[in-house]
Amino acid sequence: MAEKDEKDVCENPPEIVIPQHPDCNPEFSECAHDNRISIDLVPGKCATRGADPHYKKGYELYHQGQLDDAMVELDQSARVDPERAETHLLMGDIYERRRMFDEAIREYQESLRLSPNDGSIKFKLQNAISQRSIAHRK
Rank of each mutant, 00 (worst) to 15 (best):
D102V: 03
P116C: 04
I94D: 00
A85W: 11
M91G: 03
R36Q: 15
K4T: 10
T87K: 01
K56D: 10
I18M: 11
P19E: 00
H63S: 02
E86D: 10
V17H: 02
H88T: 06
I105T: 03
D93Q: 13
H54E: 12
L41N: 08
C10M: 04
I39W: 04
H63M: 05
L90H: 01
K57H: 14
A128K: 01
E6M: 13
S130Y: 00
K56Y: 10
I129G: 09
G65R: 06
Q109Y: 11
R106Y: 03
N127R: 12
I105N: 02
K138Q: 11
K57C: 06
K56C: 11
A70L: 03
A85G: 01
M71W: 13
R132G: 00
L125H: 05
D23R: 02
G58Q: 05
F123D: 15
S120K: 12
M1I: 11
E60I: 08
E86V: 07
K7F: 12
D118N: 13
K4F: 10
A128S: 06
D75L: 14
L112H: 04
D34F: 07
Q76R: 13
R49K: 12
Q76M: 08
F28G: 14
E30F: 15
G65E: 06
V9T: 09
L41W: 01
V17M: 09
R36I: 15
K124F: 00
P22H: 11
I105S: 02
G44L: 10
P14Q: 14
I18R: 11
I18V: 14
A78Y: 01
L61G: 06
N117C: 04
E103M: 05
D5W: 13
I16M: 12
Q66A: 13
E15G: 11
P116V: 04
G92F: 03
E27R: 12
H88F: 06
G92P: 00
I94L: 01
H54R: 08
D23F: 06
A85M: 02
I121E: 00
H88E: 07
G65Q: 05
K57D: 08
R132S: 01
R36M: 15
M91S: 07
L61H: 02
P53C: 00
H136Y: 15
P43W: 03
P14G: 10
E96G: 08
P14F: 04
V72A: 09
T87I: 07
P14M: 09
D118Y: 07
K138T: 14
Q76D: 09
V80N: 08
V9W: 09
K124P: 00
D52F: 01
S29M: 15
P82A: 06
D40R: 11
P14C: 08
K124V: 04
D93Y: 11
P116F: 05
E15C: 14
E3H: 15
F123Q: 13
S133P: 08
V42H: 08
T48V: 07
R113T: 06
M91H: 03
A51K: 09
S111G: 09
